[in-house]
Design a protein around this nucleic acid. Sequence first.
DNA 1: GAAAAAACTCAACAGCCGTTGAGGTCGCAT
DNA 2: ATGCGACCTCAACGGCTGTTGAGTTTTTTC
Lengths: 208, 208
Amino acid sequence: MTAKTAPVTSPRVGRRRGPTSTRDGVLAAARARFASDGFAATTIRRVATDAGVDPSQVMQFFGSKDDLFAAVMAIPATALARFDTAFEGPSEHLGERVVRAYLEAWDAEASESEPLMAMLRGAVVNEAAAAALREFIQSRLSHGMAGRSGDALLRAGLAASMLIGIIVSRRIVGVPALVAADTDRLVAAVGPALQVLLVAPTGWRRSA
Amino acid sequence: MTAKTAPVTSPRVGRRRGPTSTRDGVLAAARARFASDGFAATTIRRVATDAGVDPSQVMQFFGSKDDLFAAVMAIPATALARFDTAFEGPSEHLGERVVRAYLEAWDAEASESEPLMAMLRGAVVNEAAAAALREFIQSRLSHGMAGRSGDALLRAGLAASMLIGIIVSRRIVGVPALVAADTDRLVAAVGPALQVLLVAPTGWRRSA
DNA sequence: GAAAAAACTCAACAGCCGTTGAGGTCGCAT
DNA sequence: ATGCGACCTCAACGGCTGTTGAGTTTTTTC
């Protein structure tokens, strides 16, 4: 795709020489648009206007709208790494820690939370985004839960899904009761529930 | 909007006389399309083709694409009524009952689950859908939790959001771990967590 | 049967979309 | 200075969109 006949003659080609800031500006504008408007409603023309560039410039940089979206979504992989640390440590207040890590990740500054938001919004419309989110959740899950029972993997997946549901309700749908509550109240309410889900099938027995 | 100068002269005007089946066919086609493709990707031309009708016919029936979407979303209000019953009864296995009611509602036949799916997919792109979902959740919440503490309302909202998150991960994003699990396993895992969230702040104390 | 209304068809408009190609301009290496 | 490649601009294409208006057929009402 991106790999053309690499010029072997000049050793340090590959880095852009000229003003690389323009490209970054386009990427930032696209990130913001995808996060707030979603994939379908975001137009290349609008992104170009936001970045103060000609639309064809965007095409020349990223090839197509899908590639631009892929470039935006390549970022959150780094931002999501912080979730790993939340699962480590003692399991005493595990639920509370995980909830707080999720909420704070989405309350972070735009450069960190916007790719996540773009990924989340895009996952509903764009198959590539859904696949990316799917793979991410699954990989992080099977990575962190290696050697555990299949039930543990299911429970971790459920925890991630439920937390994403809270983010959706709070940031996209805008359910008043959740928007009004601050992080501490949410952690206090959800933490124990997540704790039960994650660490303790404490004598619970299936009814069927 | 929809109310024009109502013809008072003819008493029983207002009911359609002719073949009302065509209109219902268009509505059914739109419901299916909005549910599977979302709002933005669904075109009036495609809906018309599915229903075997001319595109302009759709316009004449529903006025605009937004109105068509609104007509589709007017249905789930009835389908969602079943959630009320889940909250009633003894609080012993409340969490389990609520989880099962949600999962079964989305596993129901197309005529019941498609409007819900359309509403969910649309909420991410279409502001009207987001408002409808927001109002619905909030109204059902404040209705069922009348007279309870503000904390109870928050907890119920969180429960609904988390369950919606599970639906999104399972039906839209398609996280393998959740897709593979059947309803009973999900109920067994999520039920206790919901139980803790809904009924019992059992001596839980905020860590400040 | 006549008349009116609803259901339906056909063709077209204006607008926005992603994308393309042909150029112009600037900075750097030779 | 001179070439060359990256950066950037301009104008336009073809396609698909929601929407409209006029005309035709079918059904109901009188």
